[in-house]
Design a protein around this nucleic acid. Structure first.
Lengths: 126, 126
DNA sequence: TCATTATTTAAGCAAATGCTTAAATAATAG
DNA sequence: CTATTATTTAAGCATTTGCTTAAATAATGA
């Protein structure tokens, strides 16, 4: 990519550049993990699932599909991603599987849930 | 989709189902806005940009491209998304354009930046 | 054991995403 | 005005995402 598309600004601060590089190098792992978490929660359907699980404590794919008005496989595939990402866990009861939040892995999302509830009382924020 | 792929569980709680439906209906706007925000920040490159802007106060596409080791257009396109999403703003100084965070639109991300900094001191959390 | 119910898995596909390259805009310096 | 520099825009393309449908697993009850 050199030369084309890379500007060497006359007044760029080389110290600032290498500082920036260092910072994201140091934070690389955290940034990668965080972006995974955020992109998981960044899907509207999955955010709804997380919100509903927070509200209802535990739910099965079947009930979620009714609440969200989606097919079961669609819901199931989202639940798998959430499970793989460590955000939810499940227990089996007969043929039904109840999913619930892994609160210790989700504490970062709490402010979001809180905001949603506020917003319900007091529309049009953000 | 009826019948195939939709289960009417014998022991489903109809009240819970309609409660769930109501909750996401009421929270629809907030959920939609939040998921946009999260999916914006859920891209690793954009999260790095946000983090760098938080650390350095303001940066131009050129310097960001050096720090991130990416082409300028790639960076520019991410910046546009962040701008469209209301997360960053900019000022012009000659031919250089400096981007910075719109802190009031980003306060929800502050815990994440904080976590990144903690993590730098104290590896392998989440 | 067999039929039914709940869930997952897998293949197929359309839409969205994010990069690349090349061509426009914009602003400055000579 | 012209050349140069910083940035944006746009087209092309490969990858990812998220749904659908159909087929597999799993557990229960007759």
């Amino acid at each position: 990519m050199r030369n084309e598309n890379v500007c060497i600004r006359e007044d760029a601060n080389p110290v600032q550049i290498s500082e920036g590089r260092r910072k994201i190098t140091v934070a690389a792992t955290a940034l990668s993990q965080l972006s995974s978490l955020l992109s998981l929660a960044g899907n509207e359907v999955r955010l709804k699932i997380l919100y509903l699980l927070d509200e209802e404590k535990e739910l099965c794919p079947c009930d979620l599909s009714d609440m969200l008005n989606m097919t079961i496989p669609a819901v199931s595939q989202h639940l798998r991603k959430l499970k793989d990402g460590g955000m939810v866990t499940f227990r089996r009861s007969g043929q039904t599987i109840f999913y619930s939040l892994r609160h210790e892995h989700i504490k970062l999302l709490r402010p979001f849930f809180k905001l949603i509830d506020q917003t319900n009382l007091n529309p049009t924020p953000l």
